[in-house]
């Protein structure tokens, strides 16, 4: 009997990278469907385009790096990154912007650092921030949810918009700033929060449509927690920080500072808390460290939103916190068994 010497444990592993990524995709579905429900088929077009481009980039670079292509493509990590990136985009943007963004996500954000597991910055946020800084006009032209404008672009129109065959100007009437942006601009002009809230883009708690999408991200997040795909530390700390910061300033002056509920349900706080900040590769790894990491992101989101130059700050907050991860991890090492 000839034996190949392998090392224990000799147990078939249950959880795999692929299964983790599939759980994330499942958790993204309800929010994505709600998003498309309120904002039209542009959302789905963005996701499909981003995913296809990401897979193409991934395959090309893996080939260049002489790495096995299929095992990496089928771990679905590229799909998840592209999906999250696409969700950050305005619902209608030209295809080449998606190409540039995904290019930065996959090449600069991921593979230049050594590929999955080695990137210090959240790749989807790297791609998004590049676009946000380089193409501010396209990246801040958002569209009203159908519940406000009464219509959305049809699939055909949306495709035409994305691939450039149609006159973009004709739908200008549907475009608008996001509720967060409107609040920011208005407060700067001295209008009170109560007055802004009368605008038709606002619903019960936050932006119309937005508030319900946030709810479905939350359901997806609970799924991630229930399947133990992520742990509670980062989302809880992040949401707690946003609530604490917004509550503090809301109590100080409710005329210029919006309510905690508005902050929670606007923009990308919920998806950020459960899906973006929890990217394990770029987050802190110790339990205590994850709490600090989540708190840091939450505080930065609020600071950027209220006093910064951008209406929402998830991407910048996450990237800034990514930089602090080695430090956080080093100083939050757990006590080893038997140590005082």
């Amino acid at each position: 009997m000839t034996s190949v010497i392998v090392s224990s444990p000799y147990v078939a592993q249950g959880s795999t990278l692929k299964r983790l990524m599939i759980q994330v995709i499942i958790a993204l579905l309800p929010g994505t469907i709600a998003y498309a429900w309120y904002f039209g088929p542009g959302v789905i077009i963005n996701i499909c385009l981003a995913v296809l481009l990401a897979l193409a980039f991934e395959a090309g670079i893996l080939k260049l790096r002489a790495k096995p292509v299929m095992p990496h493509l089928t771990d679905f990590s590229a799909v998840v990154a592209a999906w999250l990136f696409a969700l950050c985009l305005p619902m209608h943007i030209p295809w080449w912007l998606v190409l540039v963004g995904i290019g930065f996500t996959m090449v600069a954000g991921k593979h230049l650092y050594g590929g999955l597991g080695f990137n210090p910055f959240n790749p989807a946020m790297v791609g998004y921030v590049v676009l946000l800084i380089s193409f501010p006009r396209e990246m801040t032209t958002w569209y009203l949810p159908n519940s406000v404008s009464g219509e959305t672009l049809s699939l055909k129109e949306a495709l035409a918009y994305t691939f450039g065959g149609a006159d973009i100007q004709q739908w200008d009437a549907l475009s608008s700033a996001t509720p967060l942006d409107q609040v920011k601009t208005a407060v700067a002009q001295g209008i009170t929060v109560a007055e802004i809230r009368l605008s038709p883009v606002f619903g019960e708690y936050a932006g119309k449509g937005w508030e319900w999408i946030a709810f479905w991200w939350f359901i997806g997040g609970l799924w991630l927690l229930a399947t133990r795909t992520i742990r509670w530390h980062i989302p809880v700390a992040l949401l707690a920080a946003v609530i604490a910061m917004s509550l503090l300033f809301y109590l100080i002056n409710p005329e210029t500072y919006t309510s905690p509920l508005f902050h929670l349900l606007s923009g990308a706080v919920v998806i950020g808390a459960f899906f973006i900040a929890t990217d394990p590769v770029t987050a802190a790894t110790t339990d205590t460290g994850r709490i600090y990491y989540g708190l840091l992101i939450g505080c930065l989101i609020y600071v950027i939103r209220v006093w910064g130059g951008y209406p929402d700050g998830i991407a910048f907050a996450v990237l800034l916190a990514n930089m602090c991860v080695p430090l956080i991890d080093y100083y939050t090492q757990p006590r080893v068994y038997g140590e005082k």
Binding site: V4, V6, Y10, G117, R231, P280, T285, D287
Partner: peptide, 20 residues
Amino acid sequence: TIPKSPGYHDECIRCGKCTE
């Protein structure tokens, strides 16, 4: 039944399940 000797494995994604 015995997993093959490690020729190829995925990279660590720092998920922290090992720490748990």
